[in-house]
Design a protein around this nucleic acid. Structure first.
Lengths: 135, 135
DNA sequence: TAGGTAAGTCTCAAAAAGAGACCAGCGCTA
DNA sequence: TAGCGCTGGTCTCTTTTTGAGACTTACCTA
């Protein structure tokens, strides 16, 4: 037991393989992870995991996201298959966003990471304080 | 069983609570998650989970990262306590980066997410193809 | 003596994100 | 009936972030 995760080496090999062949963009892990590792994606996924929300509701729920980035992030999540967008022909029309099965499936591991974050944010904040105290 | 994750509501409540009080930056989950959900962090954590690497080795391993972003991302990961930076007084001095205990602990859930990504990248790519085929 | 290596920093250009005005159609109210 | 706000966006402008690439200091090698 040295803390190393089994099977990791093989995954890194996939990554390294792309290295020489200029196929880095094809690395499956990077391709998928980078779609969700940006400032707003995981936050919106977390919100939609609770229940479906409408555009304006999400905007009020996450007040420091700009309307532009909310539109764009939801669009990207929809394109990657995590989010479903349904338009209701009310007046004015309303749009509801919800997680797809793929989105709910992905939220499993993401939620694990969030639980870790909640449990360990004290340690992280302390690490920052220690680091900032040094010159 | 409706696919909803237990305890999620309470976490969203924490988030919403910050809403009115303008304390969004204090949301522990956001604070921690946003430190690792950017283009390069998870990739470098993945590399360092395999074994310690030196600066130049990481640069060669991830050839499409700029030297500037490698420096900065490693610095941020070190500040958050995930990565340890050790300078060896060789000529010229060499610097080795490795995961701390906190970093290894965080890599557990992150690795779960990466496994999901590896298993489901087919579904994601297909979703993109379907989405792009529509006008 | 020229060139390579180490781990960066510095500057400038390009890309991404944020702020806020603007849009159309309808319902409500004054 | 004139204005107002609500809906879910788009458009433009500014600021921030990222990327590309030259430059640094000190040594080792050809």
């Amino acid at each position: 037991m040295d803390g190393r995760i089994v099977n990791l080496r093989s995954k890194l090999e996939i990554y390294k393989a792309g290295n020489g062949g200029a196929k880095l963009a094809d690395c499956p892990i990077r391709d998928v992870i980078q779609g969700i590792s940006n400032k707003w994606s995981s936050l919106l996924i977390m919100a939609l995991a609770e229940k479906p929300y409408r555009f304006g509701e999400l905007r009020r729920l996450v007040p420091d996201i700009s309307q532009r980035m909310l539109t764009q992030t939801l669009h990207d999540l929809q394109r990657d298959g995590y989010v479903h967008r349904q338009v209701f022909p009310t007046k004015p029309p309303s749009v509801e966003y919800s997680l797809t099965d793929l989105g709910r499936s992905m939220f499993g591991p993401l939620h694990q990471l969030m639980q870790w974050a909640e449990l360990n944010h004290g340690a992280v904040r302390e690490a920052r304080a220690v680091f900032d105290a040094e010159d």
